[in-house]
Structure formats: structure tokens, C-alpha cells
Design a binder for these strands. Structure first.
Lengths: 119, 119
DNA sequence: TCATATAGGGATAAATTTTTCCCCTATTGT
DNA sequence: ACAATAGGGGAAAAATTTATCCCTATATGA
């Protein structure tokens, strides 16, 4: 695992939430798990642009941060299910607020974002 | 300027808001500007861990994304003031929600974050 | 005259994150 | 026998972001 060389700030609430949500796919993972897509392969299908590897890594981080729980069924072929912890569930309204803002302003957002992207 | 090689998804609201808020210091910049800290040097003092350079770069992106406005006063020594656009202001409640969640859970967050960081 | 403050940019290095590639487990279906 | 499926992980490459270093300009105060 990569070992940080720069120690993060953990001063205020924004620093703290940033530490656990910062990761390209984490918010979407939480969102889809909340929606009931619990198995790794389902999540992968929901987020096809992410590699399987990163999803595993980010799920592990979410687990370490106690936002999700992983349940491994001792069957073959293997079966794994993720679910939100209560802590993770408490984040849903916040994520929801992010998503709503994005949805409400989607046209403008697409325009300003694409302005900065060539092609 | 760095030119992306991987095109981002802009499917849902979460993708979109992610594009404009993803950046180590952006949320804090918006927050401090809203608090009335408008000049680059003030922002720098508020966020001493960020280099001057990155703050400039991220402010420029926030400006391109129409979340902040930059006013340059033609005086010497130079004076610049940033302020939130209406679009930027509409994000404040969302950022506020992020901060509140972080504040409410700060002890737990510190604990789980530090678990993963050596030393 | 010299340091300080103010704002900024280019080039490059370093840090970090994400992707790619290849490997492993065991069972079921063909 | 062999492919497919389910879930993973190591190593290295590529992509991306952030930091560092050094440069510009002008006015003010010591």
C-alpha cells in the first residue's frame, strides 16, 4: 500500500470529511451501495469506467474508515456483500445534497466543465 | 497547463459536482471567500499548508467554472479580490452540510483516519 | 539602498492516485 | 479438458495533482 509522505491536516470538519470522501469513486460507491447494489461485481457494472482494482482499494478504505461493512460468505464461487454502517448511512443526506446540486445545475456545469476540456 | 488524457464522465449530478469541487483546496477556498477573506494573500494565510502556486491554479479553475469572480484593481502594489458568484453562493449550503457532518463526527473521523496513517 | 508586501507565472520535481497487466482460488456447465 | 464466474492481490506504468524553486514588477517604509 502506498505510504503517505505528506501528513494531512485534520483541523476542521471539512478537512476530516475530505479525507474519507476524497477518492475518485468513493462517493459513487457509497451511493450505489445505499441503492442496494451490494456485490462487487454489481458495483463494477454500475461504475464501468473504474478498474476493478481501484474499486477494491477504495472499498477497503471505506471499510477502514468504518463507512461500509464487508460480509464474506464462505461459499464457492465466493460471494461478498457490502453494506453501509450507521456511520456511512449518516453521510447519505450529505451526498444526496451534493447530487441534487449537481442535478439542478447540470446544464451549466456541463458547459463550464467542457469549456476547460479540449475536444 | 496540464492536458487531460482521460475524459471525465459527466453523467449524473455527482459526476458534475465532483468535477468542480475535486481539488485539494477548492472547498476551503470557497469557504474562506464566503467568510469574507477575499484577497489572495489572506487566503494564503488562511491555508498556509497550500503553496501559493496551487492556490492560484485552483482559484483560476473555480473562476473558469464560474463559482468565483476575480476583480483586479489597477493599483500598485497590485490588489485582487475574489468573491463568490451567485452560482458559487448556491454551493455554500452544500459545503456547509459537508462541514457540519465532519464537525459532528470529528472524534470518530480522526480516529479512523489516523488508524491508516503510520506514525 | 534594501527588505517587504502584493500578485503572478514558467519549469521542473515530487507525491499521489489510478490504470493496466498478469496471477491465484474453486466450482459449475459444456 | 476448458471456459466462465466470483472475488482478490502484486508490480509496474501512466496519469494527475501538488509542491518547489526561481523569476517578473512597483511602491512603501526603515
Amino acid at each position: 500500500m502506498y505510504e503517505r509522505k505528506i501528513i494531512p491536516n485534520l483541523n476542521c470538519g471539512l478537512d476530516l470529511i475530505g479525507e474519507v470522501l476524497y477518492g475518485k469513486w468513493k462517493i459513487r460507491l457509497l451511493w450505489f451501495i445505499e441503492q442496494g447494489h451490494k456485490r462487487p461485481s454489481e458495483l463494477q457494472r454500475k461504475i464501468p469506467d473504474a478498474s476493478r482494482r481501484v474499486l477494491n482499494i477504495q472499498l477497503k478504505e471505506l471499510e477502514d474508515h468504518e463507512l461500509v461493512m464487508k460480509k464474506i460468505y464462505p461459499v464457492v464461487p465466493p460471494k461478498v456483500e457490502y453494506s453501509l454502517t450507521d456511520f456511512g448511512k449518516s453521510l447519505i443526506p450529505v451526498i444526496s445534497a451534493l447530487g441534487h446540486w449537481g442535478d439542478q445545475h447540470q446544464d451549466r456545469l456541463r458547459r463550464v466543465i467542457l469549456k476547460r476540456i479540449p475536444g
